[in-house]
Simulated scan of single mutants.
Amino acid sequence: MDNTDTKKALFVCEACGKMGVKNGNRQKYCSSQSCQNIRNARKSARNKRRTNQKTTY
């Protein structure tokens, strides 16, 4: 017997609000290019803030 029933987790994209199927357990954004651009911009801003906090005395 071939069991092809696999459970997939759904999520709501933080950028556009569309529902999607997660490819990984930490996925927050869908795969559209505009959502990926938003994700990368937010990630860059977060990393810049972290860097500034480390270097500030």
Results as ranks from 00 to 15, higher is better:
32 S>P: 00
13 C>I: 03
21 V>F: 10
2 D>H: 09
40 N>L: 07
6 T>V: 13
16 C>T: 02
11 F>R: 02
15 A>W: 04
36 Q>G: 04
45 A>G: 02
22 K>F: 04
14 E>I: 14
56 T>Y: 09
28 K>Q: 08
24 G>Y: 09
53 Q>R: 15
55 T>G: 05
34 S>V: 11
52 N>Y: 14
27 Q>S: 00
53 Q>A: 12
20 G>C: 00
4 T>Q: 08
42 R>Q: 10
24 G>E: 11
46 R>C: 08
12 V>H: 05
19 M>D: 07
1 M>G: 12
20 G>N: 05
12 V>P: 02
13 C>Q: 04
10 L>V: 06
18 K>V: 11
8 K>F: 08
41 A>N: 08
21 V>E: 13
20 G>Q: 04
17 G>W: 01
44 S>G: 06
33 Q>E: 08
16 C>M: 05
18 K>A: 12
4 T>C: 10
35 C>N: 00
32 S>R: 10
16 C>Y: 03
42 R>D: 08
51 T>N: 13
52 N>I: 10
52 N>R: 15
48 K>Q: 12
42 R>G: 03
24 G>P: 00
19 M>N: 06
47 N>R: 14
39 R>M: 09
42 R>F: 01
1 M>R: 05
52 N>E: 15
17 G>K: 02
9 A>L: 15
11 F>N: 02
46 R>M: 12
41 A>V: 03
56 T>Q: 13
13 C>G: 04
17 G>A: 02
36 Q>Y: 03
9 A>P: 04
28 K>M: 08
26 R>N: 15
49 R>F: 11
17 G>E: 00
56 T>F: 10
3 N>E: 13
57 Y>V: 11
3 N>C: 08
57 Y>S: 14
39 R>S: 02
2 D>S: 14
14 E>R: 11
45 A>M: 09
53 Q>T: 08
53 Q>G: 08
18 K>G: 04
25 N>R: 15
23 N>T: 10
40 N>R: 07
12 V>W: 04
30 C>I: 01
8 K>D: 09
18 K>E: 07
6 T>D: 12
21 V>P: 02
15 A>K: 03
27 Q>M: 03
20 G>T: 03
24 G>S: 12
34 S>W: 06
18 K>R: 11
14 E>A: 12
29 Y>H: 04
44 S>Y: 09
41 A>P: 00
25 N>E: 15
16 C>H: 03
51 T>Q: 14
10 L>I: 06
37 N>L: 11
5 D>W: 07
38 I>E: 06
26 R>A: 12
20 G>L: 03
13 C>R: 06
52 N>F: 13
25 N>Y: 15
19 M>I: 03
14 E>P: 02
25 N>M: 13
33 Q>C: 01
33 Q>W: 03
50 R>V: 09
20 G>M: 06
54 K>Q: 14
13 C>F: 01
3 N>P: 01
32 S>Q: 12
10 L>P: 00
44 S>P: 01
13 C>S: 03
47 N>V: 10
41 A>C: 04
51 T>C: 14
7 K>C: 02
28 K>P: 01
37 N>W: 06
45 A>D: 07
53 Q>D: 11
15 A>Q: 04
18 K>S: 14
39 R>L: 07
52 N>D: 14
57 Y>A: 15
2 D>K: 15
47 N>W: 13
6 T>E: 13
1 M>F: 05
37 N>T: 09
36 Q>L: 07
36 Q>A: 05
5 D>H: 09
40 N>Y: 04
35 C>K: 00
13 C>W: 04
10 L>A: 08
